[in-house]
Design a protein around this nucleic acid. Structure first.
Ligand code: ZN
Ligand code: ZN
Ligand code: ZN
Ligand code: ZN
Lengths: 156, 156
DNA sequence: TGTGATATGTAATATTATAACAATAACATT
DNA sequence: AATGTTATTGTTATAATATTACATATCACA
């Protein structure tokens, strides 16, 4: 794992933060959307849509569109990111101050760290400008092994 | 389009290059693999697996595994890249000298430019090192509008 | 030519995601 | 409160993407 911690706090914080954001933006943070966001965070690593669907269980009459629509809403509002190289979804770690963020994805423990890096962002901006390209969405996904998993290597 | 040109040359060159590479590495560049590589290039933009499957037509007894296996081979040997944000495949534009490459994906014309940028690569290396992360695969996909398509805007 | 490894054929199925339309709930206006 | 309007959710079906498992064919090479 990237870091051990009391994960319940992450979930709570994420939900509170989402509440605030939706309130400010006059969006409906419905029970379903809240529940899906909680589940995304509960998974800790990246969560697959159909796992979320299972986890919703009988609480909601959940069919695929149910969960995909909630994920769409959460993505549109920057509360969740899709990790394209995994077809999976992670909670955004700082939805309020979001910009220039990249993902470090551990193939061993499946955790995803979201990190900001101005240098990377500015070199990408230069690259894009050099090609006279107008960027709309930038995906930077780095798969590999996190520090913890490197240390555990061979110990188990 | 990123650039107009006689596309037949791209295909020929890519195939010749692939032949050389497979020869050097003692790999079997079978008819099927060659054909799939040609088709990937023929599409010019990123090609979807099931489109390739259709395009293979009756030449080969093509079922999904046929095309996915060929694509796996081509990817493993750096002849083709998968664009995760599109679930599609593009021919590698410089399979021999491959490193630090990123993709500019035009949402209008669907073309994909592969470009190298040492600055981006080195800032990503720093980011990764700062997190004590051991990268195995890095994906940089920038979706937006290419220069040509910006100029055509509103003209049609 | 025989033998093992690699590649391809084939059928079935798994996984991921969307379309289309109906029903309901929330909101706004009278 | 009754009404019209929009946003959300339910439901069924299906599309799009990808893999498993096993059979057969081809190749490399002894
Ligand atoms: Zn984020
Ligand atoms: Zn890890
Ligand atoms: Zn390449
Ligand atoms: Zn374009």
């Amino acid at each position: 794992m990237f870091a051990k911690h009391e994960h319940a706090h992450c979930i709570e914080d994420a939900v509170k933060s989402a509440e605030r954001i939706c309130e400010e933006r006059n969006l409906r943070f419905t029970d379903l959307r809240r529940r899906v966001l909680e589940l995304v965070w509960q998974n800790h690593g990246a969560a697959k849509a159909y796992d979320l669907l299972d986890q919703l269980g009988d609480e909601y009459s959940a069919k695929p569109p149910t969960v995909y629509r909630a994920l769409d809403f959460l993505q549109e509002n920057g509360l969740v990111h899709k990790i394209n190289s995994l077809n999976a979804y992670v909670g955004c770690q700082h939805p309020l101050e979001h910009r220039d963020c990249f993902f470090l994805i551990c193939s061993d423990c499946q955790e995803v760290a979201e990190c900001c890096a101005g240098d990377v962002a500015s070199s990408i901006r230069e690259l894009v400008a050099a090609h006279h390209f107008a960027p709309r969405r930038t995906t930077v996904e780095i798969e590999g092994q996190c520090q913890q998993c490197q240390q555990c290597q061979g110990l188990d």
